[in-house]
Amino acid sequence: MIRDITIGQYYQTDSVMHRLDPRVKLLGTLLFIVALFMYKNPAGYIIAIVFLFSVIKLSGVPVKFITRGLKGILMILMITVLINLFLTPGTAIVTLGKVSITYEGVGMAFTMMLRLIMLIMGSSIVTLTTTPNNLTDGLEKGLGFLKVFHVPVGDVAMMMSIALRFIPILMEETDRIMKAQLARGADFESGNLVKKAKSLVPVLVPLFVSAFRRAGDLAMAMEARCYRGGDGRTKMKPLIYKRRDIIAYIILFLFVIVSVWVGRWSVISGFFNDLYLRFLLN
């Protein structure tokens, strides 16, 4: 089940998207998400879809791999759609008892679904094409201005990269401990919820002990190499903008311009709105 969630996973391959500076990708995601929620008419979503799929094509990550990540949010998606479908006030189409599906509700539900799907796909593209270390580097540098407000950006970034680094290690450890307890006759499957939760104690206790031990070892190793906080540390591979990053920024800028322009153009907007709702109702 955990493997279904592709958010946060990295897909190993070589592409323009992979080589792009993480700061560009982070800003791009932010702008993309803001755009998704700003569009006032369906034409905007066409722009967003075109943009999203061009990026996916550039990233070299199979579309199947990205859509797999949607399985994890299927429940949230369905709830959102249902709530929007039934609880949006407007002209009723079908009435079921006290609630009714409205003309506006259909539009709203479809829009929300589109937004959520694209939001997940858009953000998973970043994590799929960026190694966790690179991502934290990008965050550290991109959010560096927060230092003015005494936010320990470097330390937070270090904590993040350590946390990410430990996820696979702790998963493996969990697997090992579970097997060791199974060998001693433990049973993780049968019984009710309380019994199942209790049966996890023999796994969780050793897991915590091992996590603390690892943390202690790591702290010692870092101190032995004179780590004394994130401030003023230089990098082995510092982030430097290349030509492709500048081009990416220009493309992003164009995307924003087009989005604003299309989103605002009421003639097109009215036309598409009409077409879109007719399409939905037929």
């Binding site: 090992r176 401990i177 060791a180 307890q181 060998a183 001693r184 006759g185 104690v201 050793p206 002990v209």
Partner: peptide
């Protein structure tokens, strides 16, 4: 079967709880 075939993993002390 696991009762008849006892398996002691590497670093078994990591399983003590």
């Amino acid at each position: 079967l696991r009762q008849h075939v006892g398996l002691v993993f590497q670093y078994p002390e990591h399983q003590l709880f």
